[in-house]
Amino acid sequence: MINIYRIFRLILLAFTLYNAIQLAINLIRYKPYYDQIPPTLKKYLLNQGGKLLGTKFKEHQQDFAINGILLAVLLCLNCLEFLI
């Protein structure tokens, strides 16, 4: 039987893998530039980046929570679909 939902999930998986590969390519491309940054500046940038991410996470916490709940529901449904 052709399971359309399975095809849909495979498409989503392919999309996720493609983006993950793109991220890895970008990390490899920019790593030499990152390595050239002096350690002090690197530490400062990491601190600033961490602070910025923390601030942004707090600002959009509600959206992240909603998406997390939706993801949990989807996982449960997938498990259910697998067990049936």
Binding site: N3, I4, Y5, F8, L12, F64, I66, V73, L74, E81
Partner: peptide
């Protein structure tokens, strides 16, 4: 991106419910 993920998840949940 939160909106995109939310829409994708809702779509996936709908598809999962239909599949079940």
């Amino acid at each position: 991106y939160n909106q995109i993920i939310k829409i994708s998840l809702i779509g996936s949940i709908g598809a999962a419910i239909l599949a079940i």
